[in-house]
Simulated assay, not measured.
Amino acid sequence: MKKRLWQLKQVADNPEELDMYIYDDIQGDTFDYWTWSMTESETSANYFREQLAKYPDVKQINLYVNSYGGSVYEAMAIRSQLLRHSAKVIAIVDGFACSAASFILTGCDEVKMYSNTMQMIHNMWDVVAGNANQLRKAADDLDKLMEGNRQAYLEKSGGKISEEELIELLDNETWLTAQECLDYGLADEVIAEEADLTEAKQLLQKANKTLEQQLSYSRALSAQIKQLSQKPKEAEPKPDPKPIPNDNNDPEPQENKTKNLFMALFVNKEED
Rank of each mutant, 00 (worst) to 15 (best):
W125R: 13
A192S: 15
Q213S: 14
T198K: 15
F266Q: 14
T39K: 10
N116D: 00
I26M: 05
K144Q: 13
T35I: 03
F96A: 03
C108A: 05
E255I: 13
M76V: 13
V11T: 12
L63P: 02
W6V: 04
F96S: 01
Q213M: 15
V128I: 10
M20N: 03
N133D: 14
Q202N: 15
Y153R: 02
A178V: 04
L221C: 10
S216Q: 07
S80T: 10
S218V: 05
L135H: 09
N62P: 05
I78M: 06
M1K: 14
Y153D: 06
A187E: 00
K269C: 06
N46R: 15
A132Y: 13
L142I: 11
K2P: 03
Y47I: 01
K144R: 14
I26Q: 05
K238G: 02
V111I: 12
G28V: 07
G148R: 12
N208G: 10
T43C: 11
G185Y: 04
N248W: 12
K3R: 12
E212A: 13
N246K: 15
L176F: 01
K2Q: 09
E50C: 11
R84I: 08
A207D: 02
N14L: 03
D240Y: 10
E271H: 08
P245R: 11
Q51D: 08
E180H: 09
D29Y: 05
Q213I: 14
N131F: 09
N268A: 15
T106Q: 11
N46I: 15
I121W: 05
Q7K: 14
I78L: 00
A223L: 10
D19H: 14
E270R: 12
L261V: 15
E147W: 10
S229T: 13
E252M: 12
E110N: 01
R79N: 00
A91F: 01
S67T: 07
R219L: 07
G107H: 01
D188V: 00
A87E: 03
D13E: 04
L166R: 00
K3C: 07
G107N: 05
N14Y: 03
D140C: 04
W175N: 09
G69L: 00
K112H: 13
K160W: 03
V89L: 01
Q227Y: 09
T43G: 14
L182P: 02
Y21E: 02
V190G: 02
N249Q: 13
C98G: 06
K269I: 10
I26P: 04
D57I: 06
A207L: 08
V65G: 05
V72E: 07
K206S: 10
L228D: 08
P15G: 09
F96I: 03
T39Q: 14
Y47W: 10
Y184R: 03
Q230R: 07
K137G: 03
G95Y: 00
V58Y: 01
V72P: 02
E234W: 06
E164R: 12
V93Q: 00
